[in-house]
Design a protein around this nucleic acid. Structure first.
Lengths: 220, 220
DNA sequence: AATAAAGTTTAGGTAAATCTAAATAAAAGG
DNA sequence: CCTTTTATTTAGATTTACCTAAACTTTATT
C-alpha cells in the first residue's frame, strides 16, 4: 500500500485518537488533531475507506482496519526511532525532536528503518517514554503509568509525556521535569486541581491540571 | 524562502546542469533530468523566476541567481551529508544511498543539518567523492580528477563517479570498483574505446567507454 | 533566405488536498 | 417528542504540480 504523506498523517492521528479511548473517532476530533477542517476529514475518510485502511460509514465515525493499524504502527515505529536518533546521537533535547521526526518518519524504507533501529541498539522506548513497535509491528505493552493528576503516591517518577506539543515540553524542560525525574507531591489543591511539586533540593512550584494530565508517572 | 519539495528538486537539477557546462539550462534538458514534460518546466520556471531564484526569459533558458545557487548548495549539503550517514553509520553500500538521500534531503532544518555534519565528523566529501558544501554554502573545489577514458597514467585511483544511476553503481560494485580502489590499465582498445582493467590480484576485465566516461580517477 | 525540424510556450484540463458555505443528520434539552 | 444546537456531509472553489495538444520561436538545412 503506497500512502501519501497526508494519508499517513491521517492514519497516525486516527490511531492516536483510538488509543486515547474514543470508540469511534469523530470527524471533528480528527479535524482538531490534524488542524484541518471537518469537510477535509470527510473527503479523506472516503479515500481511506476505499483503500480499506479504515472502517467508515456516514455519521458513524472512523476506525482503523487491521491493515490500517499495521500502517499506523509502521509510521509510529519510524517516528519514534528518529526521535531516538535525534536525542541519542545528535544531542537534541527532548522537546525539539517531535517536529523533526514528523518529517523524517515519512521516508518509507524498511531497510532504512531496520538499519536505523539496529544502529540505535534496537531501543524499546523513545525519548518521551513511548514504546517503539518492532519490525513486525508488535508494540511492547505500554508500561504501568498514570497521569499525574490521578496518581495517589507521594513520591513519583516521570515515565512519559502524552502531549508532544513544543509548548508543553519547553515548559517541562524549564521546570526541570524530564524522563526519570523524581517528583514529590507537596499538596493537591481541589479548587482548580493544581498540584504543588518539589524536585530534589529545588524550591517547590505549582502546575495546573492541564499540565499534570499530560505527565505520566509511576510510583517509586 | 520556503520551497516546496518540487521547487527544491528543480533548483537542484538546474544547479547540476549548470555545473555540467551548459551556459543556460534548456527547458528540454531540465525536463529530461527531472523526468517530466517541457510544459511543466515552463510552468515552474515562471514560479521560480517570481521567487527570484532563477533568471529566465522566454526561449532563453534558465540560470540560477546567486540566491538560487545558495538554495541549491543548501540542498546538496543535506543530500550529501545523509549519504555519508547512510554509508558510514548504517552500512549501506555506495549505490543504494542516492534514492534515500533524495528523500531525506528535503527535511530543512539547519540545526539538524549542522548537528548531523558534526556527528559525522564534518566530512568533506560524500561516498561518491563529491565535495560537501559547508554551513555557509562554500564548496571545496572539486579535486583534480579525469574521467577514466581520458586518463593517461597506467595506475589510477577511483575518486568519484559522475553518473549516480543505480544501474551503473551496481555494475561497479559487482566489479569491485569503489571509491579509493586502485586500477591498473592493461590495455586500451581503439576500435570501441573499451578499456581492460585489473584490480589487485583479481582477474582482468573490460569496461565500455560508456562506463569509463563516468569513472573519475587521479594518478597515484 | 526559405523552409523544415527541433525546442518552447500557451491554453486548457486533471488529481490531490485543501477550503467555505450551505444542506442535512444526530444529539441534547426542554 | 419536538425543537434547537451541534456534528457531519455535500457542493463548489482553490492551489500545486502535473499533463496533452496546439501554437509559436529558434535553429538548422538545403
Amino acid at each position: 500500500m503506497n500512502l501519501s504523506i497526508a494519508e499517513e498523517n491521517y492514519i497516525k492521528s486516527i490511531y492516536k485518537l483510538e488509543e486515547e479511548g474514543q470508540d469511534a473517532v469523530t470527524t471533528n476530533a480528527l479535524a482538531g488533531e490534524l488542524d484541518t477542517k471537518p469537510a477535509s476529514v470527510t473527503d479523506m475518510a472516503k479515500k481511506l475507506k476505499e483503500k480499506k485502511l479504515i472502517a467508515y460509514e456516514k455519521y458513524q465515525g472512523i476506525n482503523l482496519t487491521p491493515e490500517g493499524k499495521k500502517a499506523a504502527l509502521s509510521i509510529i515505529r519510524r517516528h519514534r526511532l528518529w526521535e531516538c536518533f535525534l536525542v541519542d546521537k545528535l544531542s537534541f533535547s527532548w522537546e525539539e525532536v517531535h517536529e523533526l521526526a514528523e518529517e523524517l518518519e515519512h521516508v518509507r524504507s524498511e531497510k532504512l528503518t531496520n538499519r536505523l533501529s539496529e544502529f540505535l541498539g534496537n531501543p524499546q522506548i523513545d525519548p518521551h517514554g513511548d514504546p517503539i513497535p518492532d519490525a513486525q509491528g508488535k508494540l511492547g505493552k505500554p508500561r504501568v503509568q498514570t497521569p499525574l493528576h490521578k496518581a495517589k503516591a507521594k513520591r513519583l517518577e516521570v515515565v512519559a509525556v502524552s502531549d508532544k506539543s513544543t509548548a508543553l515540553l519547553e515548559f517541562l524542560n524549564a521546570k526541570g521535569i524530564r524522563l526519570g525525574t523524581q517528583l514529590d507531591v507537596i499538596e493537591r489543591y481541589e479548587f482548580d486541581n493544581s498540584i504543588e511539586l518539589k524536585i530534589r533540593n529545588q524550591p517547590a512550584f505549582t502546575i495546573s491540571e492541564q499540565v499534570s494530565k499530560n505527565i505520566m508517572v509511576k510510583p517509586i
